[in-house]
Amino acid sequence: MITVGIDCGAKNTKTVVVKDNKIIGKGTSLTGFDQAAAVETSYNAALKDAGIEASDVGKIGGTGAGMDDIKQADVKVNEVKAMAKAANYYFPNARTVTDVGAEEGRAVKIDENGKVIDFAINEKCAAGAGAFIEAMARALEVDLQEMGPMVLKSDKEIPMNAQCAIFAESEVVGLIHAKTEKQDISKAIHDAMASRIVSMIRRIGVNKDVVMIGGVGLNPGFVDSLKKQLEIDELFIPEDPAYGAAVGAALVAAEEA
């Protein structure tokens, strides 16, 4: 049985193809304004990557903020359920899962079967880490890919208020004027954003193992801050964390087939 999971997120649309519990293809596209088109592009890319035709696909699970634009989907899977499934798939010992994306952050407490016990989603005024870090990379005139790694070069602790992204942004401007080193500012930004996510995780409790999915999982600076603030030695991140929710959606689709 082949199933597909499509995660239409705020920034990127990710698709995975799963065959007998194994990932055999992936595809991605920028979500942009035309969500349906983005879904189409990413879906086709994944089919091509897997070397199969659309007719080979049994069921399709859709998830993400743009879920309603995934016309192909047979099953709509809420984001929390998707991330819980994915975490359980990659790491059966997962009990706390966090998904940090462009616009939204979530944390879920799950049992040994990947069932949702409790969850937290950031509220309106708490910015998602991804989009904020991107905006700050522009302010610092640093390539986004360098933002995370440069954090590791800094050992400064600059307290920054992360209650409000706008407020944090004006603090960053202040640091730039004060001629603070870029790597130190970058660390302050990552620490502040990680602190918001950690606050949210603490709401449901930090139970080991802690798993992180979502594109920000590729940012070593953020991951480092998160680990330190959660006071854990190991944070489990799957190989392609951005595809986490899509994998979860494909697995749910397989269950419901």
Partner: peptide, 26 residues
């Protein structure tokens, strides 16, 4: 869920319904 009894600017219907879905499914 977060909201406001008398200031609609602080309430997001779609995201609240989404939360309800997740909860009721659980």
């Amino acid at each position: 869920y977060e909201g406001n009894m008398g200031d609609e600017r602080e309430f997001d219907l779609a995201s609240v319904q989404n939360r309800f879905d997740i909860f009721l499914e659980s």
